[in-house]
């Protein structure tokens, strides 16, 4: 018998691997260069030597808030904004979407349309339209940056809607709630003990998207002249660029790390085999 057959498939696979590594390497160089540029810039001193001064300063939160009060104020404002936006988004969307599925399926197109509408409204346009509304917000509340959360909820509406919709699609809300009600649960219990626990992953990813968008938002805050993290970084960038760039890089790396970690946690849906899905969805008319 002849030796091992070096087959067509092996050749094909080798070619595919080479192609993949070539493309990925080029992509990583392109994606990596500006990030490296930031790192290089923040570890440079006036005479061009390497120094970790900027980063050690960044690690020392006490001095930061003393020396760069605007930056820490912006950070605090952005964190508040993230929390408020997530809470408002969930309070507005989860009950509405669940209720529409359970009792008012006729409204589902309307809700979907409204939630996806902001996709066609660029942030800059939203600023134009929100100007009179925010005049009232300032009059009724005050001019604090945290009230930007009203605009941010609109901004994240499409993304949060999609994440939650995917979660609701994966479970049979109607059967679950009917089962719970038949066992004697009230609507409150149904929401808190049955629907929400099953939506955990969807709620988590909607919240993550919201936080990411909120922390990165610049347009609205800048044009309404309110200081959030991005605006503070922008303003500081004009006087002390290094610390500003360092904060930006740190935030970016943090976001990548979080998303990377989350990719190992989620994704139980993939374990549903394609076969069982096929059986469920294709009814034979015979």
């Amino acid at each position: 018998m002849a030796g091992p057959v070096s087959g067509q498939r092996a050749v094909m696979r080798r070619r595919q691997n080479a192609f993949r590594w070539a493309v990925v390497t080029v992509a990583l160089l392109f994606f990596g260069a500006p990030l490296f540029g930031m790192l290089e810039f923040t570890t440079r001193d006036a005479s061009g030597h390497r120094t970790a001064a900027t980063w050690s300063q960044l690690a020392d939160l006490g001095t930061i808030s003393q020396r760069y009060p605007d930056l820490s104020a912006g950070l605090v404002a952005s964190l508040w904004l993230a929390v408020l936006t997530v809470v408002m988004m969930l309070v507005l969307l989860v009950p509405t979407m669940t209720w529409v599925r359970l009792r008012l399926p006729g409204l589902s197109r309307t809700v979907e349309f409204l939630c996806l509408l902001p996709l066609t409204v660029p942030a800059i346009v939203l600023v134009v339209g929100l100007t009179p509304v925010y005049a009232w917000v300032t009059y009724l509340l005050n001019g604090s940056a945290v009230w930007l959360c009203f605009a941010y909820v609109v901004l994240v509406l499409p993304y949060a809607y999609r994440a939650l919709d995917a979660g609701l699609r994966a479970i049979d809300v109607r059967t679950l709630s009917e089962a719970a009600r038949s066992l004697g649960a009230g609507w409150g219990t149904v929401m808190a003990r049955v629907i929400l626990p099953n939506l955990r992953t969807a709620v988590l990813s909607a919240a993550f998207l919201t936080v990411a968008l909120t922390l990165g938002e610049f347009t609205i805050a800048n044009l309404f002249s309110r200081t959030n993290l991005q605006v503070a970084m922008y303003l500081l960038g004009k006087s002390d660029a290094q610390i500003s760039v360092a904060v930006g890089l740190a935030a970016l790396l943090f976001a990548i790390a979080i998303l990377f970690a989350m990719s190992f946690v989620g994704g139980q849906r993939d374990t549903v085999s394609p076969l069982s899905r096929l059986r469920r969805h294709r009814q034979e008319p015979t």
């Binding site: 030796g3 091992p4 067509q8 498939r9």
Partner: peptide, 8 residues
């Protein structure tokens, strides 16, 4: 669609 290691 699959290479055998050996055989005919």
């Amino acid at each position: 669609l699959e290479d055998p290691d050996g055989g005919r």
